[in-house]
């Protein structure tokens, strides 16, 4: 449940973090001189962290009597999402399919 604090501390912290993550991502992508693959790994990870931030600090997935269900639900959805994205790209860029 929401902490009984008077000020929305976790929201402010979450907001600041997401601003920082966004700008770091922009910096890494456009100003740093490293290979494409490394950039993608870094900004991809930053995006995932930021999504997690929203999920836990703004949306409070774990809250309430169904918190556990919510977490399982999100985990399964993410599993399916990874299968769809990584699977499709893998299948359609291998072998004859690539041409």
């Amino acid at each position: 449940m929401e902490h009984k604090s008077k000020y929305p501390v976790s929201h402010v912290v979450g907001f600041l973090f997401s601003l920082i993550l966004t700008f770091v991502a922009v910096f890494v992508a456009l100003k740093m001189n490293v290979s494409y693959t490394i950039v993608m790994w870094i900004i991809g990870s930053l995006a995932i962290i930021q999504a997690g931030l929203q999920l836990f600090m703004f949306m409070h997935v774990t809250e309430g009597e169904d918190g556990k269900t919510n977490v399982i639900n999100m985990a399964y959805a993410v599993f399916v999402a990874i299968v769809i994205v990584a699977g499709s790209i893998w299948v359609l860029t291998s072998g004859h399919a690539a041409h």
């Binding site: 893998w90 299948v91 359609l92 291998s94 072998g95 004859h96 399919a97």
Partner: peptide, 8 residues
């Protein structure tokens, strides 16, 4: 039969 190769 689309043949995405042996790995796939």
């Amino acid at each position: 039969t689309m043949d995405a190769g042996p790995a796939v």
